[in-house]
Structure formats: structure tokens, C-alpha cells
Amino acid sequence: MTLAFFFQQLLNAVQLGSIYALIALGYTLVYGVLRLINFAHGDIFMAGAFIGYFVATLLVGVGIGWPWGFILTLLFSMILTALLGVGIERVAYRPLRTAPRLSVVVTALGVGLLLEHIALGAFGASRRNLPPLLPETWMQSVEINIMGEYLSFTWLKVLIIVISLLLMIILQVIVRRTKAGMAMRAISYDKFAVPLMGVPMDRIIAITFILGPSLAAAAGVMYATQYPVIEPYMGLLVGWQAFIAAVVGGIGDIRGAMVGGFILGFVQIFVVALGQFPALSFLSSTYRDLVAYALLLIILVVKPTGIFGVATRQKV
């Protein structure tokens, strides 16, 4: 494997990984606070992409282009998707807060499938393209010479990585510097610590359902600028990968979600990349998912709580 090839794949991996990480954060935040696997989160990501699509179409339609079109699309889809997230929590999860956990998990599965089929009914199954929000040149591959080998990349990939990292830093600031954020982290360690901190539980939950979905929406918009895949099932396809990332990292742990996202990005990109070598050609791209799930299963068997997760012991 040449160095340039390696760097090129590395860039791809970091880009895919950062999308996974953004979505995985949503799974992890909700799990940390509510101990609920929010199975609907993948479809919230899908909803974010659709909202982004409509916002972008509107903005491009009235002639707002780069850079404001892009920035506003990102911003509005984040806000609207956050509203959707908070709404889902209000309507579907809150009435079940004292119910057995199983019912909430089932509800979450139901909400996800509901979103998916509403999208299918309303928008159909065909794939949609985000209208051009970025200058053409950003999408074209640029080649740079590394020791005689050409490394090709697009500025779009760089942009996605930069924005993702920026959002993750903002998230870190929120959970480390604000009172509600600290309370959020505290709950994920100890459920009973929070009332002591004087922050109402409802507010913490609301903030969680603002942060998670807005990150997912950002991921959705960026994913859609990269690939022409806005469709009702994208939540199932991409969302589940992100979910695996969250579990691999240790669901409930913020670092875990990020690390898990990048690990999964690397593994998947390199499995496909290695398949380009004749000797390894059996690694076709259909193995991508299989590898992801195998990784998940291995982690679950070896360390069920993921890389960063801490086991909760049941007391006898």
C-alpha cells in the first residue's frame, strides 16, 4: 500500500467517521440521561436530511447561495430537527417515564419506524439530491503530489471534517461548562446525583433532545452534500452504523461515541479499500455491513459495555 493511497483512505475514513460520530453522540446522550436506547435516532437523522433538503431548496429557490445558503441550511435544519426531537420526547417518551424500560424501548422502535413510513408515504422512495449549496470547485477532486504519488481529495471532505470537529468541540464546551451540561454528565454516572445539583430533570432531558437531534441534522445535511442519498431508509442504513459506533465506544459515554464513530469509519473504509488489492478481492463492498456487525458482536462478547463503558453491577 502506498503512502498516498493510505492518506487518501485515511481522509475518507475520518470523514465517514465524523458523520458516524455526530449521529452516535445523539444515541449516547439520550442513553446517558434516560438509559434509553433511542432507536428512533437514526430516523431523526433521516428527518434532519429531509428538512435540510426542503430548506436548501427554498433558499436556492430565492437565490441565496454559497456561503449563506449552506450555513442557513445547516442552522435551520438543526433547529427544526431539534424541535422534532423535543416533540417526540414530549409526546411519546415522557408519558412512559415511570413505565418499565422495555415499553419505552419498544416505543422508540415504533417512533423510528413511524417516521420512516411517514416519510415514505409523503415523499416516496426515490432518492433526492440536495440542491447545489457549495461552489462546484469544492466538489471536484484536487490532487496533490506526495513523493511521486497523487493524493486526490475534495475540499468538501475537509469541510465536513472541520464542521464536525467544530460541533464536537461546541458539545464538549456545553457539557463541561454549562450547569445543565454538567448535570447531564452527572446523571450518566449516577442517576441520583442530579436532584442534588438543583437542575430540573425535565430541562436536562429537553436539552438532551435538542443536542442529539441537532447534531444528527448537521450530519444529515453534510452527508447529503457528499452523497445523493436523501431517502426514507437512510436512517436505517446510516443510523444503524452510527448506533453500532455508539455501542462499540460504550453507549452513554461521550468520548466513546466519538472514538466509536472514527473506529467504525476506519474499519469500513479500509475493508473496502483493501478489497481493491487483487489478493484481497473477496472483500467486496457488500462486506462493509457484515464487518461492522461482526465488530459489534465481538465487542459485545469481549467487553459488553464498549470501550469506555463502565459495567453497572447488580447488587445481590
Binding site: A99, V104, G110, V111, L114, H117, L120
Partner: peptide, 19 residues
């Protein structure tokens, strides 16, 4: 497709009102 929408809605309502 709306049939599916109905199923999942049914599931959610079931969890809310008759677990």
C-alpha cells in the same frame, strides 16, 4: 405505505395506553 404508519402508531399507542 400508510398501512405501515398505522401499525407503528398502533404500537406506540399500545405502549402508552395498554401495555
Amino acid at each position: 405505505v400508510w398501512k405501515k404508519v398505522l401499525i407503528w402508531l398502533l404500537l406506540i399507542l399500545l405502549m402508552m395506553f395498554r401495555r
